[in-house]
């Protein structure tokens, strides 16, 4: 493995066995190899159902691989203990999912500030950072103190993005980060991605929007459908 890479996938396969459907086996990833270096933003390319989201979840450790290795900052997340994965998620891997998992009664500002607090940053400073990002993403200040349950899709996505860019993750996973955003806010996200690359973050993204894709991608990673087992 090249010491310069932040993320290295080797021979990663993932299949699901659906026991409730008579043991139906779905092969989604088949021997995927991928290296991502600091400053790169690799956009996953391929038709719907090819396994782009699955690959992101494999890298994040949510999906346990069937075979292969996923090395992140010296740890193989495929074989790591749960608490090692938790440590990676606290210090190394950021994830901007398409949908915000809303926690009842917690304000948007605190949801955004949480990753910094988890790293030991004081509540005040974490909130200051969160406020700076939310302002930049044009989220109306009157919403900051509210739980995002009632926010629009675009507002929730901006909360998610702010959360993803609050700390300097060495590796950032982005799942359609601009899908629900207008052009102006999408531009802010593109700038944030550029700044993160500038400080050496490695990124893997899913992005269907052509304009945005050319704006953020340093490289496309072509994915092909896995051979379905009989």
């Amino acid at each position: 493995m090249n010491p310069q890479t932040t993320l290295a996938l080797r021979g990663v396969s993932k299949h699901f066995v659906q026991h409730l459907r008579g043991g139906l086996r779905l092969d989604v990833l088949d021997h995927v190899d991928l290296d991502v270096a600091p400053g790169e933003c690799v956009v996953l390319d391929g038709p719907s159902g090819v396994g782009k989201s699955t690959l992101l979840k494999v890298i994040y450790g949510t999906y346990r691989v069937s075979t292969g290795h996923v090395r992140i900052a010296g740890t193989d997340i495929a074989t790591a203990e749960p608490r090692q994965v938790l440590a990676l998620r606290r210090d190394t891997i950021g994830y901007v999912s398409q949908f915000l998992r809303v926690v009842p009664r917690v304000s948007a500002l605190d949801i955004v500030a949480e990753p910094a607090r988890a790293r030991g940053v004081s509540t005040g400073e974490a909130r200051d950072r969160a406020a700076t990002l939310l302002r930049r993403l044009n989220l109306p200040e009157k919403l900051w103190s509210l739980p995002p349950a009632t926010f629009s899709g675009g507002e929730q996505q901006r909360v998610n993005i702010a959360r993803g860019f609050l700390v300097d993750w060495p590796l950032l996973l982005l799942d359609e980060p601009t899908a629900s955003l207008d052009a102006a806010n999408a531009e802010v996200v593109a700038d944030l991605i550029g700044e993160a690359r500038g400080r050496g973050a490695a990124m893997v993204a899913i992005c269907h929007d052509q304009t945005m894709r050319t704006r953020i991608a340093t490289r496309l990673f072509a994915m092909r459908p896995a051979e379905q087992a009989a």
């Binding site: 699901f16 979840k57 450790g61 949510t62 999906y63 346990r64 749960p82 994965v85 938790l86």
Partner: peptide, 8 residues
């Protein structure tokens, strides 16, 4: 992990 067990 919770998301591993619930999502996969």
């Amino acid at each position: 992990l919770t998301d591993q067990v619930l999502d996969d």
